[in-house]
Design a protein around this nucleic acid. Structure first.
Lengths: 186, 186
DNA sequence: TATATTCTGTACCGATCGGTACAAACAAGC
DNA sequence: GCTTGTTTGTACCGATCGGTACAGAATATA
Protein backbone atom coordinates (compact mmCIF):
# COMPACT_ATOMS: atom_id res chain seq x y z
CA UNK A 1 0.00 0.00 0.00
CA UNK A 2 0.98 3.57 -0.69
CA UNK A 3 4.12 2.73 -2.59
CA UNK A 4 3.07 5.23 -5.23
CA UNK A 5 5.52 7.98 -4.22
CA UNK A 6 8.45 5.59 -4.46
CA UNK A 7 7.65 4.56 -8.00
CA UNK A 8 7.18 8.21 -8.91
CA UNK A 9 10.54 9.32 -7.58
CA UNK A 10 12.29 6.37 -9.16
CA UNK A 11 10.92 7.11 -12.61
CA UNK A 12 11.47 10.87 -12.53
CA UNK A 13 15.12 10.98 -13.65
CA UNK A 14 14.42 8.85 -16.70
CA UNK A 15 11.35 10.89 -17.57
CA UNK A 16 13.32 14.10 -17.18
CA UNK A 17 15.95 12.82 -19.56
CA UNK A 18 13.34 12.04 -22.20
CA UNK A 19 11.87 15.55 -21.91
CA UNK A 20 15.37 16.98 -22.12
CA UNK A 21 16.15 15.11 -25.30
CA UNK A 22 12.88 15.39 -27.16
CA UNK A 23 11.04 18.34 -25.65
CA UNK A 24 7.55 18.20 -24.24
CA UNK A 25 5.76 17.52 -27.52
CA UNK A 26 8.39 15.14 -28.78
CA UNK A 27 8.45 13.04 -25.63
CA UNK A 28 5.84 10.42 -26.44
CA UNK A 29 4.39 8.08 -23.88
CA UNK A 30 5.84 5.21 -25.86
CA UNK A 31 9.30 6.73 -25.45
CA UNK A 32 8.78 7.44 -21.77
CA UNK A 33 7.53 3.92 -21.23
CA UNK A 34 10.53 2.43 -22.97
CA UNK A 35 13.05 4.54 -21.04
CA UNK A 36 11.49 4.01 -17.65
CA UNK A 37 10.70 0.36 -18.23
CA UNK A 38 7.15 1.13 -17.09
CA UNK A 39 4.02 0.27 -19.03
CA UNK A 40 1.18 2.66 -19.56
CA UNK A 41 -0.67 1.08 -16.67
CA UNK A 42 2.10 1.87 -14.21
CA UNK A 43 2.72 5.29 -15.69
CA UNK A 44 -0.89 6.37 -15.39
CA UNK A 45 -1.08 4.84 -11.95
CA UNK A 46 1.84 6.97 -10.75
CA UNK A 47 0.80 10.05 -12.74
CA UNK A 48 -3.00 10.02 -13.04
CA UNK A 49 -3.00 13.23 -15.05
CA UNK A 50 -0.65 11.82 -17.64
CA UNK A 51 2.10 13.64 -19.43
CA UNK A 52 1.31 17.04 -17.96
CA UNK A 53 1.65 15.69 -14.45
CA UNK A 54 4.93 14.01 -15.34
CA UNK A 55 6.30 17.31 -16.62
CA UNK A 56 5.12 19.11 -13.50
CA UNK A 57 6.74 16.50 -11.28
CA UNK A 58 9.99 16.76 -13.21
CA UNK A 59 10.01 20.55 -12.99
CA UNK A 60 9.29 20.33 -9.26
CA UNK A 61 12.12 17.86 -8.76
CA UNK A 62 14.56 20.10 -10.61
CA UNK A 63 13.39 23.14 -8.67
CA UNK A 64 13.78 21.25 -5.41
CA UNK A 65 17.27 20.12 -6.29
CA UNK A 66 18.45 23.63 -7.06
CA UNK A 67 16.74 24.99 -3.98
CA UNK A 68 18.63 22.56 -1.75
CA UNK A 69 21.98 22.51 -3.48
CA UNK A 70 22.29 26.04 -4.79
CA UNK A 71 19.74 28.60 -3.63
CA UNK A 72 19.75 27.72 0.07
CA UNK A 73 23.56 27.96 0.41
CA UNK A 74 23.47 31.21 -1.54
CA UNK A 75 21.02 32.56 1.01
CA UNK A 76 22.31 30.99 4.20
CA UNK A 77 26.02 30.23 3.93
CA UNK A 78 27.88 32.60 6.22
CA UNK A 79 30.55 32.89 3.54
CA UNK A 80 28.72 34.25 0.47
CA UNK A 81 31.80 33.97 -1.75
CA UNK A 82 32.07 30.27 -0.96
CA UNK A 83 28.38 29.84 -1.75
CA UNK A 84 28.86 31.51 -5.12
CA UNK A 85 31.78 29.27 -5.91
CA UNK A 86 29.69 26.30 -4.84
CA UNK A 87 26.95 27.48 -7.21
CA UNK A 88 29.41 27.53 -10.08
CA UNK A 89 30.76 24.06 -9.37
CA UNK A 90 27.32 22.55 -8.77
CA UNK A 91 26.11 24.15 -11.98
CA UNK A 92 29.05 22.71 -13.86
CA UNK A 93 28.35 19.27 -12.44
CA UNK A 94 24.58 19.40 -12.96
CA UNK A 95 24.85 20.39 -16.60
CA UNK A 96 27.66 17.90 -17.13
CA UNK A 97 30.08 20.64 -18.15
CA UNK A 98 27.84 21.71 -21.01
CA UNK A 99 26.84 18.31 -22.31
CA UNK A 100 23.38 18.55 -20.78
CA UNK A 101 20.82 21.24 -21.44
CA UNK A 102 18.54 23.01 -18.99
CA UNK A 103 15.09 21.51 -19.21
CA UNK A 104 13.53 24.57 -17.63
CA UNK A 105 15.13 26.84 -20.20
CA UNK A 106 14.10 24.56 -23.04
CA UNK A 107 10.51 24.52 -21.78
CA UNK A 108 10.59 28.30 -21.49
CA UNK A 109 11.35 28.65 -25.19
CA UNK A 110 8.63 26.32 -26.45
CA UNK A 111 5.97 25.86 -23.82
CA UNK A 112 4.30 28.90 -22.39
CA UNK A 113 0.60 28.42 -22.84
CA UNK A 114 0.56 25.61 -20.26
CA UNK A 115 0.48 25.60 -16.51
CA UNK A 116 4.26 25.29 -16.53
CA UNK A 117 4.84 29.00 -16.85
CA UNK A 118 4.73 29.63 -13.10
CA UNK A 119 7.19 26.89 -12.30
CA UNK A 120 9.53 28.05 -15.05
CA UNK A 121 9.41 31.65 -13.90
CA UNK A 122 9.85 30.61 -10.28
CA UNK A 123 12.97 28.60 -11.03
CA UNK A 124 14.75 31.56 -12.57
CA UNK A 125 13.31 34.13 -10.18
CA UNK A 126 14.53 32.16 -7.19
CA UNK A 127 17.96 31.69 -8.67
CA UNK A 128 18.32 35.37 -9.47
CA UNK A 129 17.07 36.44 -6.03
CA UNK A 130 19.29 34.02 -4.09
CA UNK A 131 22.37 35.05 -6.05
CA UNK A 132 21.61 38.73 -5.68
CA UNK A 133 21.32 38.23 -1.95
CA UNK A 134 24.69 36.48 -1.79
CA UNK A 135 26.33 39.25 -3.81
CA UNK A 136 24.82 41.81 -1.51
CA UNK A 137 26.15 39.98 1.52
CA UNK A 138 29.52 39.83 -0.23
CA UNK A 139 29.64 43.59 -0.16
CA UNK A 140 28.26 44.63 -3.54
CA UNK A 141 25.94 47.62 -3.76
CA UNK A 142 22.31 46.58 -4.16
CA UNK A 143 21.90 47.75 -7.75
CA UNK A 144 25.11 46.07 -8.80
CA UNK A 145 24.15 42.86 -7.03
CA UNK A 146 20.81 42.72 -8.85
CA UNK A 147 22.42 43.46 -12.18
CA UNK A 148 25.19 40.91 -11.71
CA UNK A 149 22.77 38.23 -10.57
CA UNK A 150 20.50 38.63 -13.57
CA UNK A 151 23.52 38.65 -15.83
CA UNK A 152 24.85 35.45 -14.29
CA UNK A 153 21.60 33.50 -14.54
CA UNK A 154 21.08 34.52 -18.13
CA UNK A 155 24.70 33.88 -19.04
CA UNK A 156 24.49 30.31 -17.82
CA UNK A 157 21.41 29.71 -19.96
CA UNK A 158 23.11 31.27 -22.95
CA UNK A 159 26.15 29.10 -22.38
CA UNK A 160 23.97 26.00 -22.50
CA UNK A 161 22.28 27.14 -25.70
CA UNK A 162 25.54 27.95 -27.44
CA UNK A 163 27.33 24.82 -26.25
CA UNK A 164 24.50 22.73 -27.59
CA UNK A 165 24.18 24.67 -30.84
CA UNK A 166 27.87 24.40 -31.63
CA UNK A 167 28.04 20.87 -30.24
CA UNK A 168 31.01 22.14 -28.26
CA UNK A 169 30.75 21.67 -24.49
CA UNK A 170 33.95 23.68 -23.99
CA UNK A 171 31.88 26.81 -24.59
CA UNK A 172 30.20 26.15 -21.26
CA UNK A 173 33.45 25.84 -19.34
CA UNK A 174 34.83 29.06 -20.78
CA UNK A 175 31.60 30.83 -19.88
CA UNK A 176 31.80 29.62 -16.28
CA UNK A 177 35.38 30.84 -16.08
CA UNK A 178 34.44 34.34 -17.20
CA UNK A 179 31.48 34.30 -14.86
CA UNK A 180 33.64 33.47 -11.87
CA UNK A 181 35.78 36.46 -12.69
CA UNK A 182 32.76 38.70 -12.74
CA UNK A 183 31.09 37.34 -9.60
CA UNK A 184 33.90 36.78 -7.16
CA UNK A 185 36.78 39.24 -7.30
CA UNK A 186 39.81 37.17 -8.24
CA UNK B 1 5.35 29.83 -64.70
CA UNK B 2 8.02 29.46 -62.09
CA UNK B 3 6.28 31.52 -59.45
CA UNK B 4 7.24 28.92 -56.89
CA UNK B 5 10.01 31.00 -55.29
CA UNK B 6 7.63 33.90 -54.78
CA UNK B 7 5.05 31.81 -52.95
CA UNK B 8 7.84 30.32 -50.87
CA UNK B 9 9.26 33.64 -49.79
CA UNK B 10 5.82 35.02 -49.06
CA UNK B 11 4.90 32.15 -46.79
CA UNK B 12 8.21 31.97 -44.92
CA UNK B 13 7.58 34.66 -42.28
CA UNK B 14 4.28 33.09 -41.24
CA UNK B 15 5.82 29.63 -41.14
CA UNK B 16 8.72 30.95 -39.08
CA UNK B 17 6.33 32.45 -36.59
CA UNK B 18 4.53 29.12 -36.16
CA UNK B 19 7.82 27.32 -35.54
CA UNK B 20 8.80 30.04 -33.09
CA UNK B 21 5.58 29.66 -31.11
CA UNK B 22 5.14 25.91 -31.13
CA UNK B 23 8.54 24.43 -31.86
CA UNK B 24 9.28 22.01 -34.65
CA UNK B 25 7.22 19.12 -33.31
CA UNK B 26 4.40 21.31 -32.14
CA UNK B 27 4.03 23.13 -35.43
CA UNK B 28 1.49 20.97 -37.22
CA UNK B 29 0.73 21.26 -40.89
CA UNK B 30 -2.82 22.19 -39.96
CA UNK B 31 -1.47 25.12 -37.96
CA UNK B 32 0.94 26.17 -40.67
CA UNK B 33 -1.82 25.95 -43.24
CA UNK B 34 -4.13 28.10 -41.15
CA UNK B 35 -1.51 30.78 -40.49
CA UNK B 36 -0.26 31.01 -44.05
CA UNK B 37 -3.70 30.70 -45.59
CA UNK B 38 -2.28 27.96 -47.78
CA UNK B 39 -3.79 24.50 -48.21
CA UNK B 40 -1.77 21.34 -48.08
CA UNK B 41 -1.66 21.30 -51.87
CA UNK B 42 0.04 24.67 -52.07
CA UNK B 43 2.28 23.93 -49.13
CA UNK B 44 3.59 20.70 -50.59
CA UNK B 45 3.91 22.33 -53.99
CA UNK B 46 6.18 25.03 -52.57
CA UNK B 47 7.99 22.67 -50.18
CA UNK B 48 8.02 19.19 -51.78
CA UNK B 49 9.88 17.72 -48.83
CA UNK B 50 7.28 18.90 -46.38
CA UNK B 51 7.88 20.20 -42.90
CA UNK B 52 11.59 19.52 -42.88
CA UNK B 53 12.06 21.62 -46.00
CA UNK B 54 9.99 24.41 -44.50
CA UNK B 55 12.20 24.44 -41.43
CA UNK B 56 15.34 24.45 -43.57
CA UNK B 57 14.01 27.33 -45.64
CA UNK B 58 13.13 29.28 -42.51
CA UNK B 59 16.57 28.73 -41.01
CA UNK B 60 18.20 29.75 -44.29
CA UNK B 61 16.11 32.91 -44.41
CA UNK B 62 17.06 33.82 -40.86
CA UNK B 63 20.72 33.10 -41.55
CA UNK B 64 20.58 35.23 -44.68
CA UNK B 65 18.98 38.12 -42.86
CA UNK B 66 21.64 38.16 -40.15
CA UNK B 67 24.40 37.77 -42.71
CA UNK B 68 23.21 40.86 -44.57
CA UNK B 69 22.17 43.05 -41.68
CA UNK B 70 24.63 42.10 -38.99
CA UNK B 71 27.55 39.88 -39.95
CA UNK B 72 28.55 41.69 -43.15
CA UNK B 73 28.72 45.14 -41.49
CA UNK B 74 30.65 43.58 -38.61
CA UNK B 75 33.17 42.32 -41.12
CA UNK B 76 33.25 45.15 -43.63
CA UNK B 77 32.26 48.42 -42.00
CA UNK B 78 35.33 50.63 -41.81
CA UNK B 79 34.14 51.74 -38.37
CA UNK B 80 33.97 48.53 -36.30
CA UNK B 81 32.51 50.30 -33.28
CA UNK B 82 29.64 51.58 -35.39
CA UNK B 83 29.08 48.06 -36.73
CA UNK B 84 28.91 46.68 -33.19
CA UNK B 85 26.41 49.32 -32.19
CA UNK B 86 24.42 48.50 -35.32
CA UNK B 87 24.49 44.84 -34.29
CA UNK B 88 23.03 45.72 -30.92
CA UNK B 89 20.26 47.87 -32.36
CA UNK B 90 19.40 45.40 -35.11
CA UNK B 91 19.34 42.62 -32.54
CA UNK B 92 17.02 44.62 -30.34
CA UNK B 93 14.72 45.28 -33.28
CA UNK B 94 14.80 41.72 -34.63
CA UNK B 95 13.91 40.17 -31.29
CA UNK B 96 11.33 42.87 -30.66
CA UNK B 97 13.10 44.02 -27.51
CA UNK B 98 12.81 40.61 -25.93
CA UNK B 99 9.25 39.79 -26.92
CA UNK B 100 10.37 37.38 -29.62
CA UNK B 101 12.57 34.35 -29.14
CA UNK B 102 15.41 33.09 -31.32
CA UNK B 103 14.16 30.24 -33.44
CA UNK B 104 17.68 28.99 -34.03
CA UNK B 105 18.37 28.85 -30.32
CA UNK B 106 15.07 27.11 -29.65
CA UNK B 107 15.83 24.53 -32.34
CA UNK B 108 19.27 24.02 -30.86
CA UNK B 109 17.78 22.99 -27.53
CA UNK B 110 15.29 20.49 -28.89
CA UNK B 111 16.29 19.39 -32.36
CA UNK B 112 19.73 18.01 -32.86
CA UNK B 113 19.32 14.67 -34.52
CA UNK B 114 18.06 16.28 -37.75
CA UNK B 115 19.83 17.86 -40.65
CA UNK B 116 19.34 21.22 -38.98
CA UNK B 117 22.44 20.89 -36.83
CA UNK B 118 24.77 22.33 -39.46
CA UNK B 119 22.60 25.36 -40.08
CA UNK B 120 22.19 25.98 -36.38
CA UNK B 121 25.92 25.71 -35.73
CA UNK B 122 26.68 27.88 -38.73
CA UNK B 123 24.40 30.67 -37.56
CA UNK B 124 26.19 31.00 -34.23
CA UNK B 125 29.65 30.32 -35.60
CA UNK B 126 29.28 33.07 -38.17
CA UNK B 127 27.98 35.52 -35.60
CA UNK B 128 30.80 34.81 -33.21
CA UNK B 129 33.44 35.02 -35.94
CA UNK B 130 32.13 38.26 -37.42
CA UNK B 131 31.93 39.92 -34.01
CA UNK B 132 35.39 38.72 -33.02
CA UNK B 133 36.73 40.22 -36.22
CA UNK B 134 35.09 43.56 -35.52
CA UNK B 135 36.46 43.59 -31.98
CA UNK B 136 39.91 42.81 -33.32
CA UNK B 137 39.65 45.66 -35.79
CA UNK B 138 38.51 47.87 -32.92
CA UNK B 139 41.84 47.30 -31.26
CA UNK B 140 41.22 44.42 -28.90
CA UNK B 141 43.85 41.71 -28.49
CA UNK B 142 42.95 38.54 -30.40
CA UNK B 143 42.29 36.39 -27.35
CA UNK B 144 40.14 39.06 -25.75
CA UNK B 145 38.22 39.59 -28.99
CA UNK B 146 37.41 35.88 -29.25
CA UNK B 147 36.39 35.69 -25.62
CA UNK B 148 34.23 38.81 -25.77
CA UNK B 149 32.54 37.68 -28.97
CA UNK B 150 31.60 34.29 -27.59
CA UNK B 151 30.37 35.96 -24.43
CA UNK B 152 28.21 38.38 -26.38
CA UNK B 153 26.56 35.78 -28.60
CA UNK B 154 25.78 33.55 -25.67
CA UNK B 155 24.60 36.43 -23.53
CA UNK B 156 22.05 37.47 -26.15
CA UNK B 157 20.68 33.92 -26.25
CA UNK B 158 20.52 33.81 -22.49
CA UNK B 159 18.72 37.13 -22.42
CA UNK B 160 16.07 35.74 -24.74
CA UNK B 161 15.63 32.62 -22.61
CA UNK B 162 15.33 34.57 -19.38
CA UNK B 163 13.06 37.26 -20.81
CA UNK B 164 10.74 34.56 -22.07
CA UNK B 165 10.90 32.49 -18.90
CA UNK B 166 10.10 35.44 -16.65
CA UNK B 167 7.65 36.86 -19.20
CA UNK B 168 9.55 40.09 -18.72
CA UNK B 169 10.96 41.61 -21.92
CA UNK B 170 12.79 44.26 -19.89
CA UNK B 171 15.36 41.61 -19.04
CA UNK B 172 16.46 41.72 -22.65
CA UNK B 173 16.92 45.48 -22.69
CA UNK B 174 18.98 45.46 -19.51
CA UNK B 175 21.15 42.72 -20.94
CA UNK B 176 21.78 44.69 -24.15
CA UNK B 177 22.76 47.70 -22.05
CA UNK B 178 25.35 45.73 -20.11
CA UNK B 179 26.58 44.16 -23.31
CA UNK B 180 27.17 47.54 -24.92
CA UNK B 181 29.28 48.52 -21.96
CA UNK B 182 31.40 45.42 -22.38
CA UNK B 183 31.77 45.58 -26.15
CA UNK B 184 32.30 49.24 -26.91
CA UNK B 185 34.24 51.22 -24.36
CA UNK B 186 31.83 53.83 -23.12
C1' DT C 1 -9.44 29.88 -78.84
C1' DA C 2 -7.01 25.64 -77.87
C1' DT C 3 -3.37 23.65 -75.26
C1' DA C 4 0.18 22.92 -71.95
C1' DT C 5 1.62 23.83 -67.32
C1' DT C 6 1.31 25.33 -62.83
C1' DC C 7 -1.27 25.59 -58.82
C1' DT C 8 -4.55 24.19 -55.11
C1' DG C 9 -8.61 22.06 -52.43
C1' DT C 10 -10.22 17.72 -50.91
C1' DA C 11 -10.26 13.15 -49.74
C1' DC C 12 -7.69 9.83 -48.07
C1' DC C 13 -3.60 6.89 -46.21
C1' DG C 14 -1.19 4.31 -42.41
C1' DA C 15 1.03 5.53 -38.21
C1' DT C 16 1.08 7.38 -33.96
C1' DC C 17 -0.61 10.43 -30.56
C1' DG C 18 -2.43 10.84 -25.38
C1' DG C 19 -5.61 8.61 -22.76
C1' DT C 20 -9.04 4.88 -20.96
C1' DA C 21 -10.90 0.24 -19.65
C1' DC C 22 -10.23 -3.68 -17.56
C1' DA C 23 -8.88 -8.15 -16.29
C1' DA C 24 -5.04 -10.77 -14.80
C1' DA C 25 -1.13 -10.68 -11.51
C1' DC C 26 0.42 -9.51 -7.27
C1' DA C 27 0.89 -8.53 -2.38
C1' DA C 28 -0.81 -8.08 2.53
C1' DG C 29 -3.82 -9.30 6.34
C1' DC C 30 -6.12 -12.76 8.48
C1' DG D 1 -6.62 -21.29 2.57
C1' DC D 2 -9.53 -16.77 1.43
C1' DT D 3 -10.21 -11.88 0.79
C1' DT D 4 -9.01 -7.21 -0.08
C1' DG D 5 -6.62 -3.82 -2.28
C1' DT D 6 -2.78 -2.30 -5.26
C1' DT D 7 -0.03 -2.71 -9.38
C1' DT D 8 0.48 -3.87 -14.12
C1' DG D 9 0.15 -5.46 -19.21
C1' DT D 10 -2.75 -5.28 -23.06
C1' DA D 11 -6.21 -4.03 -26.06
C1' DC D 12 -8.52 -0.43 -27.51
C1' DC D 13 -10.45 4.50 -28.25
C1' DG D 14 -11.08 8.79 -31.15
C1' DA D 15 -8.16 12.39 -32.73
C1' DT D 16 -4.49 14.00 -35.10
C1' DC D 17 -0.10 13.46 -37.14
C1' DG D 18 2.83 14.09 -41.75
C1' DG D 19 2.32 12.85 -46.25
C1' DT D 20 0.15 11.33 -50.92
C1' DA D 21 -3.15 11.16 -54.90
C1' DC D 22 -5.49 13.45 -57.95
C1' DA D 23 -9.03 16.03 -60.21
C1' DG D 24 -10.31 20.45 -61.22
C1' DA D 25 -9.21 25.53 -61.23
C1' DA D 26 -6.26 28.86 -62.72
C1' DT D 27 -2.72 30.66 -65.60
C1' DA D 28 0.41 31.14 -69.38
C1' DT D 29 1.87 30.40 -74.29
C1' DA D 30 0.34 30.47 -78.64
Amino acid sequence: MAKKPVAREDALPAIAEVFREYGYEGASLALIGARTGLGKGSLYHAFPNGKAEMAEAVLDAIGGWFEDKVYAPLRDDPDPRAAIRLMLSETDAYFRSGRRICLVGAFALTEGRDGFADRIAGYFRDWRAALAQALLRAGRPAAEADSLAEDAVLTIQGGLVLARALADPAVFGRMLGRLEGRLVSV
